[in-house]
């Protein structure tokens, strides 16, 4: 048994060291990604193809790190567990192997969660843009460009009094000739930029929603752990206290269960209110889109 214990301890230490090395490598990768992303995005096409490829490659490498850990779990941890978990002839032997397996898996899970959080945060930082400035810039560019459009027939300046998001016919008010007006790239990007700006402005509501969503899960897990601890509990006083604690946690969890979808609805409404402010001529479409989204979410 002592020999096995030493083997398990050594394997666990190797796992710790392995995960530390992979974390360092992931950090180097993500730091490099963030620095490089700035240059790539600056020189990219309007569709962001170069950045998309760069992002996919980075995600691919992060995935390789996950696969490496998965492989270690499958080849170094689980075979040891399966080999020894049923050998329960010695007292405490089986529980030692189970606890070791659980500790290793918990470490792997924690490592994966941290990696996911680091990856998401790096991508979010790399992609962050002040959409207030971008939107205003597109709008100003459109208004400047539409002032330089003249009738192909008589040369008079065309009266363009609204925002067009795609190519349209404009009739010359002087000679009645029908002209084709292409509003240009900035106008075509206005709807997309407005949506991103509306989401950015509504972000605090989404963060609140995510807080309650996470809180619901955390409270559930706390109550679940208390439930598990009751399985072998004999002391009635402790049982009573734990059951009361479980009931309190459940009450708080129910508040979060109600609050999270309410906040999601609030977030959607906020995004579409912002969109209506930014592009008031599309209000009717926004409202239909809002109904479709809320129907789907429900």
């Amino acid at each position: 048994m002592q020999e096995l214990q030493q083997h398990l301890e050594a394997t666990e230490q190797r796992l710790d060291a392995f995960l530390v090395k992979l974390t360092q490598r992931a950090q180097e990768l993500l730091n490099g990604f963030e620095q490089e992303a700035v240059n790539i995005r600056r020189n990219d096409t309007i569709y962001g193809q170069a950045y998309s490829r760069f992002l996919a490659a980075t995600r691919g490498q992060v995935q390789k790190l996950r696969e490496k850990v998965k492989e270690v779990e499958e080849t170094q941890i689980m075979p040891v567990f399966y080999r020894h978990c049923t050998q329960s002839s010695l007292a405490g032997f089986s529980s030692m192997v189970y606890e070791w397996r659980n500790r290793c898996q918990a470490k792997i899970l924690q490592w994966e969660e941290q990696l996911y959080a680091s990856e998401s945060a790096a991508i979010e930082r790399a992609e962050w843009q002040d959409y207030e400035t971008v939107f205003q810039s597109h709008l100003q560019q459109y208004h400047a460009e539409k002032e330089k459009v003249y009738c192909k027939q008589c040369g008079a300046k065309l009266a363009i009094n609204q925002v067009y998001y795609y190519t349209v016919y404009i009739t010359c008010t002087f000679c009645q000739t029908q002209n084709i007006f292409n509003p240009g790239t900035s106008a075509r990007q206005l709807e997309d930029t407005a949506r991103k700006l509306a989401e950015q402005r509504s972000r605090p509501v989404l963060e609140q929603q995510q807080f309650y969503q996470q809180r619901e899960r955390d409270l559930y897990m706390q109550a679940h752990e208390l439930q598990l601890s009751l399985i072998h509990e004999k002391n009635n006083q402790i049982i009573k206290e734990k059951q009361q604690a479980i009931a309190r946690l459940e009450e708080q969890r129910q508040e979060a269960v109600v609050k999270a979808p309410q906040l999601m609805e609030e977030y959607h409404r906020s995004v579409f209110d912002e969109l209506n402010n930014l592009l008031p001529d599309l209000r009717e479409h926004h409202e239909k889109f809002y109904r479709a989204i809320t129907t789907h979410y429900q």
Partner: peptide, 9 residues
């Protein structure tokens, strides 16, 4: 190669 090919368990 990949980013962590040199890291062994």
């Amino acid at each position: 190669g990949n980013v962590a090919d040199d890291i062994e368990f």
